[in-house]
Design a binder for these strands. Sequence first.
DNA 1: TATTGTTATACTCTATAACTATA
DNA 2: TATAGTTATAGAGTATAACAATA
Lengths: 135, 135
Amino acid sequence: MERDDLGALFGRVVRRLIAAERPLLEAHGLTMWEYSVLTHLAKQPTETQQALAAAIGYDKSRLIPLLDGLAGQGLLVREPDPANRRAHAVRLTPDGLARLEAARADIRAMEEELLSVLSAAEQRHLLAVLPRLAD
Amino acid sequence: MERDDLGALFGRVVRRLIAAERPLLEAHGLTMWEYSVLTHLAKQPTETQQALAAAIGYDKSRLIPLLDGLAGQGLLVREPDPANRRAHAVRLTPDGLARLEAARADIRAMEEELLSVLSAAEQRHLLAVLPRLAD
DNA sequence: TATTGTTATACTCTATAACTATA
DNA sequence: TATAGTTATAGAGTATAACAATA
């Protein structure tokens, strides 16, 4: 066998990342899925719950208690959509954005350290290639 | 935000890989963990159950029904270790190796196709860099 | 009739502790 | 007392279906 499967290689990297992220997120009072919601809302300021669930690859029914928790902490608000009274528009609050950015700063620092085993050119190559494989 | 988190990028790639692998493995009558066991035994022909569980990142208690199923299909055998009668040595059978190689051929073909969005040089760079991030 | 959010339920996956037989 | 394998059980995570309100 000339090399390991891609699934095994990528899987091991993801496990490392998850293990390294968990305590950082926990220190900011966030789970991985909560962080994922905040991250998406920072990119896409207003989303219906359904669009949000689809975008982050989560189930719309599991999303409800997740949003309840984040709304309870004041990190996001659910506003009735005047154009479609069935839909709720989910929006990040300033507190939510601040919490996200604080958590992200820690995660980015961890990532830089993990990437530091690679040369600057290798890091550039990797970051250029990953989004193309992810789509 | 200059780029997505590494966790998000790698996570999306892994989800793609898992989604693409599942039907291939299913066609060979294997789950992902079963494939993982066979793959490890092909590299490391004889292992105790405990060492095997640790190596693939699985729980020793969950491993038992998994090995039962694979042994029932004749893909591996559990032999009492004469030196230590508590331990069982797990060993791949010729059928197990054949099943693994058939599944792996399909998976490799899928991987080549997924990687084909990259140039040959980009593929080389990626495959050189991944194992260093995985450790 | 279809869609949005919600709730309830069942199912799978995973982690923990306890048991046996050996050492 | 500790270890290898096993079993049982509880917990977390996930998927599915059904419901109310609105379109």
